[in-house]
Every structure is written in C-alpha cells, then in structure tokens.
C-alpha cells in the first residue's frame, strides 16, 4: 500500500522535474515524453519493483486518460471554423494518410514476421494515444504496446517531419497541418505550431479526424488483410 502511494508520488515528481528540465534545455531527447518513462523504468529495474506494485499506485493516473480524451472535444470545438473552411481537403488528405498508416503497418509487420497481435497494436498508432489504445484493445492488440508505439511515432515524426517538409517542398499551412496532425497526433500538433497558428489549427483538426478515421478503418483493414 505504502509502496504503491510512493510510486504514484514518484511518477508525478519525475514528470514535473523532467518538464522543468525540458523548459531549461529544450532538446528533443530531453522531452518529458522520453525522460519520464526512462527514469521510472530504470528506478523500477534497480529497485526490483514488480510492475503490479507500481501499477496499483501510479495506475490512478491512467483513470484520467478518459476525461482527458473527452477534453479533446474542446479542441475540436475551438478549431471547427478552420475545419468548415477546408473540410473536404482535410478529410480526404487525412483519410489517405490514416488508411495508409494502418495498411503499411500491417503490411510491413507481415514482411518482418511480426505476430498479428503486435501488428494490431501498431496499426492505430497514428491516432492520438488514448484513442489509439482503445482502438487497439478493440481489434485485439495490446494497449501498452500501442502506448509505447504511439510515443515512438510522436518522437520520430518530430525529427522526420521537418525533413519531409523540406525535401518534398510542403509549403502551405493546409498541407503541413495534415502532414503533422495525421502522422503524429499531439506531438505533430506541437511541431506544426512551430510553423504558425494556422498550421497548428489544421494539425489539431487533422489529429481529431485521424482518430475517427482510424477508429472506422482499423478494424476493417486489419480483419481484411
């Protein structure tokens, strides 16, 4: 019991410290997204703590995933004007990207001999984490693998995205926004905001549309392939 409370407090403390660290030294490998789980994994390994002990306490935080996901409705509401202006273009672009995500993931997983549950866990990883996790458990994946895969996707896209934008001369806010929002959820949105507000808004909308398209497409594509 005490150990569980300790790990809850510990998780929050490491998170707050890594956020402060990132504010001071803004390097991509210092993002709390990487640092917090890494520090906790090392701590658990060194102290030989069984995961259930950790989960009993820190798992309370997982209960806030649902409420935070629903808070995305506010994001949707705030950007709905942007959506109405470009609805067709955004939806079509996102559909292409989101379906490509599921198709290429399942195809490549086959090619590399990964098992079906792993492929199903990786398939929804372009959607925002909470939604990706619930899609994953819907189609027979493992939500934890999905959570990690989604995180890895976010980190990769923060590095790769700007390179793709440059190499393929993606210039408009619409194109950049859908590129980041469709490929890499909230990490992509924060990267898109570095270009300008319009790009950020499109990315936020693209992220939400991606969640819905993935929700509809993933079960269908994974069972069909």
């Amino acid at each position: 019991m005490i150990a569980s409370v300790f790990w809850l407090v510990c998780t929050i403390a490491v998170y707050l410290l890594s956020k402060r660290l990132y504010r001071k030294y803004t390097r991509i490998y210092l993002t709390p997204l990487i640092v917090t789980p890494a520090v906790l994994l090392v701590a658990i390994a060194l102290l030989k703590v069984p995961y259930p002990t950790y989960e009993r306490g820190a798992g309370l935080l997982s209960d806030l995933v649902g409420p935070a996901t629903i808070a995305l409705a506010v994001t949707l509401y705030k950007h709905v004007k942007e959506m109405k202006r470009n609805a067709g273009a955004i939806i079509v672009s996102v559909c292409f990207g989101a379906v490509a995500a599921v198709l290429t993931t399942v195809g490549l997983s086959r090619l590399f001999g990964l098992s079906a549950p792993i492929a199903d866990s990786l398939a929804p990883r372009s959607a925002t984490t909470p939604i990706a996790m619930s899609i994953s458990s819907h189609i027979g994946g493992l939500p934890t693998i999905t959570a990690v895969a989604t995180l890895v996707t976010g980190i990769m896209s923060m590095i790769m995205g700007p390179l793709v934008v440059k190499a393929f001369r993606i210039r408009t806010p619409l194109a950049r926004g859908v590129l980041f929002g469709t490929s890499s959820h909230s990490s992509g949105v924060s990267k898109a905001l570095e270009y300008d507000d319009a790009t950020g808004s499109i990315a936020a909308i693209a992220m939400m549309v991606t969640a819905f398209v993935t929700l509809l497409a993933a079960p269908w594509v994974t069972s069909w392939l």
Binding site: N86, G88, A89, I90, V92, S93, V94, F96, G97, A98, A100, A101, T104, T105, L108, S109, F112, L114, L122, R125, S126, A149, V152, T153, M156, S157, M160, G161, V164, V165, F168, I170, R171, T172, L174, A175, R176, G177, V178, L179, T182, S183, S184, A206
Partner: peptide
Amino acid sequence: AIVILCSTFAVMLCSGLMGQWFS
C-alpha cells in the same frame, strides 16, 4: 521500430502531398 519509421514516412507523404495538391 523500422515498421513505425517506414509507416510514419508513408503517412506523411500521403497526407502531406494530398494536402499540397488541394492547396
């Protein structure tokens, strides 16, 4: 990791180029 990398690249190309075309 390779699957995620290649797939993410594919998603970026599909959505980004499509968006560019619409623009």
